[in-house]
Nucleic acid binder design. Structure first.
Lengths: 187, 187
DNA sequence: CGAGGCCTTGACCGCGGTCAATGCCCGTGG
DNA sequence: CCACGGGCATTGACCGCGGTCAAGGCCTCG
């Protein structure tokens, strides 16, 4: 069970007043394994903080289900393209385990920016982290073999294997279950 | 020869005063073909607007030279990771043709944000466009064959073929010159 | 005219994809 | 409590895309 405050402190600490204000726009949510937190086609108006559990962002490429990202305790989840453009998202968010979340309403959040510059900076920081991790991911896809990508993934998320079905991990790594299975067979 | 004003107007039009202020932090620059605008290892403190010519952002993956992006008239060029982190960049910017540019100093630019909210919004918009185009690029890399990527590239930049050496295009598409050559042989 | 850079082409190979068969685990109902 | 069915994972056979290595043509520039 992760605390929002601890995560924030590790990124961009807030004054008690700002933290209070931020808490005011957070709503606790529980969601069951294998249900959708946000369905494909909805417009994303929230950012979620994961207190407990595991989620995946996914979409359909033709017939096949692709896992776009995997998120665990302590992470923030959002569908940024939809959040900033206001367009319905082609991606959905699904619980892989029973989850406890905080829902942060995006409109209420940006209303806080005027009064609390530090909150704006915090989320700017979160956004930049996401941006840079995407740049790294491109490098991974373009230059590393599936085997190396799998090894890196294990290093970053050692407990993912026990919690996430292999088929999700495979499409997250950009390969098929079959290929992933072969890679695992070699240790 | 592209005008900065026209491009801005097509993205987020500014009032005359704001446009004046922005012009005040722009410096015209000329640079010769095959020379570096910014060398690898420098910290990026500028955003460039391309009035004329063609540039590429590149870096070294081991021994091999990789073209990260290609930019033509009307585009903005920056090394965002370096700009936001303040770290020296692993990427360089090189002129593929003789170029005429406007250099926008990043510090002076952000100093304008307080007085001109619209300028901040303009650049926020530019940044978001870059973010979304990166998301699309990931899709391209992950799901389209080299042949399709080449076809899409031709559609987006029809004149690139005449202006950019094939070896740069190849690494930009994430393949070798040899493979690109074979793809081209099939039309 | 020679040298070097750029592009093309051929021979060869390995990674990862598809298709299909099989094994395993688990929930449900007789 | 066991039997069955379905979803997930593994394995084998096969294949094609794109990579490497090396040779050869072509252009430009000194």
């Amino acid at each position: 069970m992760k605390k929002l405050k601890e995560i924030i402190d590790s990124i961009y600490p807030l004054t008690p007043e700002a933290y209070e204000a931020l808490s005011g726009v957070c709503t606790p949510i529980s969601i069951k394994k294998n249900t959708d937190l946000q369905a494909i086609g909805q417009t994303c108006k929230s950012i979620y903080f994961v207190k407990k559990g595991a989620l995946r962002v996914y979409y359909y490429k033709g017939e096949t289900d692709i896992t776009d990202s995997l998120e665990f305790e302590g992470a923030f989840v959002a569908r940024v393209e939809s959040l900033v453009t206001g367009q319905p998202s082609k991606k959905g968010i699904q619980a892989i385990e029973d989850c406890e979340l905080l829902m942060i309403n995006a409109d209420k959040l940006s209303a806080l920016y005027d009064s609390y510059l530090e909150i704006e900076r915090l989320f700017k920081q979160l956004f930049l982290k996401a941006f840079i991790s995407i740049l790294n991911r491109i490098e991974g896809i373009q230059f590393h073999s599936a085997e190396v990508r799998y090894a890196n993934f294990l290093k970053e998320c050692p407990d993912a294997l026990k919690r996430v079905p292999l088929k999700y991990i495979a499409s997250y790594l950009g390969i098929t279950q079959v290929s992933l299975s072969r890679i695992r067979a070699k240790y």
